[in-house]
């Protein structure tokens, strides 16, 4: 599973990264977590607001921090799908 946090480095973006990192560890999933800070690359996902979360190429959320429940449900669903 490939997880990306998009954001140029504002407070909320760092928070989202930590949140995702923690959630992955807690759930014991195997995933590569990357932080995308280059604006050209961020724009490639078509998001208008940061932070944004991308799981396996799909934008899950943008412009807000998801709840822990939302996050773990996305992660587990994506992990089960392969």
């Amino acid at each position: 599973m490939e997880v990306k946090v998009l954001g140029p480095g504002c407070t909320k973006c760092k928070k989202l990264y930590e949140q995702v990192d923690q959630s992955i560890k807690q759930l014991g999933l195997s995933a590569t977590l990357a932080k995308v800070e280059k604006i050209e690359e961020i724009m490639g996902y078509g998001v208008l607001a940061t932070p944004a979360l991308v799981i396996n190429g799909e934008v899950k959320v943008s412009g807000r921090l998801p709840s822990a429940a939302e996050l773990s449900s996305w992660l587990t669903t994506a992990a089960m799908a392969g």
């Binding site: 140029p8 504002c10 604006i39 724009m43 998001v47 208008l48 607001a49």
Partner: peptide, 15 residues
């Protein structure tokens, strides 16, 4: 519209 200045750049480009 929810907006925060850290999102000004992606929003500008996206628009």
């Amino acid at each position: 519209t929810p907006f925060c200045s850290c999102s000004a750049v992606p929003l500008f480009i996206g628009f």
